[in-house]
Amino acid sequence: MPIIDGALEMRQVFYQSVGRLAAQDERVVVLDADLSSSSGANAFAANYPDRFFNCGIQEANMVGVAAGLSAGGFIPFVHSFAAFISRRALDQVFVSCAYAGLDVRLVGSDPGLAGHANGGTHMALEDVALMRSIPGVVIVDFSDPGMIDPVLDASMRQPGVYYFRLFRKTRENLYPQGTEFELGTAYIAKDYGNDATIISAGFIGMREALKAADLLRRDGVAVRVLDMFTIAPLDAGAVLAAAAQTRAIVTLDNHSITGGLGSAVAEILAGRTATPFRRLGATGFGEVGTLDYVLEKFGLNAAAVAATVRGLLGV
């Protein structure tokens, strides 16, 4: 995995991209809930002090204010930790944003196990399930900073409620610079062969999925890896193609086993294919520890993925 020397953190890339949009479009504004130095929104605030609103520690009001800003013609980007922007402000997202038909971009940082340093209260292991249950919400889990510009550009052409999962601090690039990504289309991250397909999304999941593909290749198992960075609406065509063209499918969620990417894939596959299929995702509540520790504990690391693929193939 290349780490480009002096590369920016994901959060810096994200708010640079928002700043680029703000320069082009005066409707773009940014809200945060006393986490702007964590989210990186403070860099936007420095450049656009009149278009940044620190709402204080009040996620419900912040999401409602964002809905009002949208009703008044603005395009708000609204950040809190993934656990809070989803669990804590869910009814505001549902009623004031989505049901009201408004245009709001929700940014949830440190999704899933990325909250490992803060433990179970801060680990969003159900945010995708919650957002996926709201009609029309577009969910993107960024695995590589190169996705941010094209996804945000596409979002400007298509109003609605967006939920962006953002692993803040990584500087690692999973893909070569210049790789093209299209909102709504799965990215084929590896295509070693047709023995099986591994589907994941987001930096933590994709890094393990790519490692698993390399572990399997050493053992003579050649897999395809799909980066399903647009979790909703799901690229059903890519899932069905994998089911038709490869002999097994394994999904890896940086999220609960209930309601996440694996569930979304299962909804596509159910009744349509007999291709062997397993889902890997977290069960129970999160806890503090290192990322390696929690990945191991929940059985979501590369070794677990590789073992699951081998199990399905009987090799």
Partner: peptide, 25 residues
């Protein structure tokens, strides 16, 4: 009808957002 409401308390925040939008614009 300027805003969707029904889940009590939420109109407070959306009204503040609409007022803020008018100030910004």
């Amino acid at each position: 009808v300027d805003m969707t409401t029904g889940s009590l308390g939420q109109g407070a925040s959306s009204a503040a957002g609409i007022a803020l939008a008018d100030q910004l614009a």
